[in-house]
Design a binder for these strands. Sequence first.
DNA 1: ACCAGGTCTTTTACTCGTAAAAGATGCTCG
DNA 2: CGAGCATCTTTTACGAGTAAAAGACCTGGT
Lengths: 213, 213
Amino acid sequence: MRATEDLPAGGGGPAEGARRADDGTPAGEALPAGAGVPTGEGAPGAGQDTVAEVVRQWRAVYPGLDTGPMEIIGRINRCAALLQQAEDAPLGRAGLTRPEFDLLGALRRTGRELTPGELARETFSSGAAVTKRLKQLGARGLVERRGDPRDRRVARVRLTGAGQEAVDGVMPAQLAHESAVLSGLGGAARGELAPLLAELLGRLEGRPGTPRT
Amino acid sequence: MRATEDLPAGGGGPAEGARRADDGTPAGEALPAGAGVPTGEGAPGAGQDTVAEVVRQWRAVYPGLDTGPMEIIGRINRCAALLQQAEDAPLGRAGLTRPEFDLLGALRRTGRELTPGELARETFSSGAAVTKRLKQLGARGLVERRGDPRDRRVARVRLTGAGQEAVDGVMPAQLAHESAVLSGLGGAARGELAPLLAELLGRLEGRPGTPRT
DNA sequence: ACCAGGTCTTTTACTCGTAAAAGATGCTCG
DNA sequence: CGAGCATCTTTTACGAGTAAAAGACCTGGT
């Protein structure tokens, strides 16, 4: 997760490697956030996820440890990974990657010009990454840049007409696609997940949250 | 996304790019999964997450669209991104990245020798990535490989004593760290999240789920 | 005015992961 | 038996992201 997103996918902002892109996570560290248990496995039934089996294996190895956190964190990580693969079909059709869409989306939702630095913060990515993406999106005619007259260090980036059309053309399909991915989830579950995740995310964001370079 | 994990983090398996993050998410596509709203924002209070603000912006732009999916998917992506940054402190201290830990963890939890292909499936990463990690972990003396006598195409990988010590030394700290990250989340919320995420993950994994190369 | 220090963006060097091709075996079937 | 195809792993080529340094530009104090 990377941590990239801009919202049709539900929310936040820019990409990440969730990223992760992974980041996914860059050269961070590597705790056990949920290795799957892709191998055969006995249980046939529904409702079995790979994380459950991995947790079972770990408990057998370390009977004394509390594996509770794995069941939440591992699942979030795994869900994010699968969602990012499944989620991006409409974007791919439009010839956009998620980080690119996140950037365009930030401009569209805020409705104003943004500087590269602001875009980096909105999309939770590094300034260097934004520079590269702007170069590509500019070459494709989706964004324009002009210098700020007041402060010549600063650039101001805005969507072109084609850029806005691209976002407006993809967004409905993206939201519909995400809706489809979540279908099959009981209505009750859907209603409960959002607030619970909001609480968790609020806590996580409370801490400074490792600002980007 | 990346999307790498092996469990202490809660779950699933290997990385992803998340990323991989990914992003994160590798070169997938880019729906709006939750661009943050890092900018000022008016609301001061607690319980405000960045995704909420992004959703608000999108709704203002597209009043007719159902932004519900964003509130779940965007938050999952953003949580995964933040968790992967916050989560890996103990691993870093041990000199391991998460993908490396995922690999070692797969060997530890299964308790047997695995082939590179099996490791790739367990850790949800590509075979090429496993090859590279095995080279590094082998050079550090954490894993050993020997040829399978029956089938010389196949390699068999196992933890060395040092490798097992590394996992056993880090795992408790990692779980404790993850527990700390989740503290602050009400006990009720903690109890509800795991089964809800399990249901979602089960659905997501039901589909083939883009097998790795 | 000048200069030390800070801000904003881009560039550079590097790492990591992937996809696709290449190698090396094993297996089946005529 | 051996040709052709499948399987397992590694290699190659490349794209993307990051951190850190470099550039360019403001600003406040003296």
